[in-house]
Amino acid sequence: MGVALFTLGGTISMAGHTPGGEGAVSRLNGADLTAAVPGLARLGMPLDIHDIEAVPSANLTFAHILDLVDSASQAVKAGACGVVVTQGTDTLEETAFLVDLVWPHAEPFVLTGAMRNPTLAGPDGPANLLAAARTAASPAARGLGALVVFNDEIHAARWVRKTHSTSTATFASPNTGPIGHVIEGHTRILTAPVRLRAPYPRPEALDNTRVALHTVTLDEDVDTVAAVADARHGLVIAGFGVGHVPGRLADLLGTLAERMPVVLTSRTGSGSVLRHTYGAIGSEADLQRRGLINGGLLDPYKARILLRLLLAGGADREAVTAAFAEHG
């Protein structure tokens, strides 16, 4: 058995420069990536390389990731003890959560990438790839679902976030911290996240399911929120603090919640939406009385992933509410 490596592009695979000398271009395939990693040969098992279409992570879609999960699943069924995926970091936290919701195997599914491309001093890609491969090969990581391994830290997909635009320590789990570390080449799991439920099946109506996300800001324009929600099947609201919006938005959000699921989250980056601490118009208690669904600890980006997956799979309001009570 070995580890299946799937490469999607991103900073980790960039090398060389455009003709004008500005910016890196994607040129490295899986064989190039692995050849640049000192110590990978001592992993103790082979890497089975699968080069997928190299695209910036900003261009990835649900379909891309679900196709990747299907391919990774086939690799596991063929004997792989774990999976590593390299991709760009821009959307890595979202793809990891989507994978976690649908991954049906005990074998680890590990995502990683880089913040410094190989043309720069101190590229972090080789170290991240080595740590990811060690984690994917480790029996200690079995049953943990999708993981993000960066900077020798192991993060659960449900909690991890990209927190800095350039730092090599960008990935963090503000609510929990990392669940483990790679120390002297060994994977150490310190706490295991609970796998909440059986994986969701791949939905058939994904292309026809539209879910919007709107971040509430100071002096918010009601018409803007209405326009964002127009012709959507669901809406995620990233509210202030513990789940508040300007009072003038409350009626609109209540009206929207009568025709589609509207999930209330916090724009802060960590912490939970509350349920019954504040009661003014536009507060979390008021919005829930109007039919909004509490997103709990899920950040807005992950809430949108879950809501779209649920609606594309035909979930009704009761099922959506129950799912967010479980995941949030």
Rank of each mutant, 00 (worst) to 15 (best):
G269N: 13
L60T: 11
A231E: 15
I49A: 05
T61P: 13
A231M: 08
D100E: 01
A322F: 11
S26H: 07
E220G: 09
L297F: 05
P246N: 08
G314M: 10
I179E: 03
S26E: 14
G180K: 11
D100L: 01
E22I: 13
E318W: 00
L213M: 06
I49Y: 02
A133P: 12
T217A: 10
E93S: 14
L144R: 05
W159E: 14
A132I: 09
T187P: 13
Q74C: 10
A35D: 14
P199V: 03
A229P: 06
G177T: 10
E184H: 09
P19Y: 09
R210H: 15
R304Y: 00
L43P: 04
A121Y: 01
R195S: 13
E93N: 12
Y200N: 09
A141W: 06
S71W: 06
L206M: 15
D223M: 10
G10E: 06
R290M: 01
D221N: 15
L43F: 00
G143A: 04
G9Y: 06
G79M: 01
G23E: 12
N175P: 10
R275F: 01
T166R: 14
H105W: 00
L298A: 08
F324W: 04
V3H: 11
R142V: 02
S13M: 08
P19Q: 02
F150H: 07
V245A: 02
P123F: 01
R197C: 14
A72I: 04
L28S: 01
A131I: 12
E258K: 08
G239Q: 02
V83T: 00
S73W: 05
G21D: 01
H233C: 13
W159K: 05
V69S: 14
D316T: 00
G44Y: 12
P123C: 04
A205R: 09
L60P: 08
A157L: 08
I189A: 08
T7Q: 08
T321M: 13
T224R: 12
L60S: 12
G279F: 13
F97Y: 14
R195W: 07
L28N: 02
T89D: 14
G328F: 08
L253R: 03
L311F: 04
D251K: 03
A285M: 11
F6V: 03
A137K: 01
T265Y: 03
S167R: 12
L101Y: 04
A78C: 09
A226I: 04
R188A: 13
E184R: 13
P56M: 02
A127H: 14
L43Y: 02
V3A: 09
L292M: 05
K162M: 08
L33R: 06
A63V: 11
L252R: 10
P46I: 04
K162H: 04
P199R: 00
A72R: 07
P178L: 01
V228F: 14
G243Y: 02
T91P: 12
L287C: 12
N59D: 15
G296W: 05
V182P: 10
T18K: 15
T224P: 05
A238C: 00
T86D: 11
G239T: 00
H186W: 08
T217G: 07
I52A: 11
V182Q: 10
A285E: 14
F62K: 05
L144Y: 05
E284A: 08
P104L: 01
V273F: 03
A80C: 03
A75T: 13
I179V: 14
N29R: 03
R289E: 07
F150G: 13
T86Y: 06
V110F: 04
W103K: 07
G185Q: 04
G122V: 05
L60I: 06
A156N: 05
S71G: 08
A169S: 15
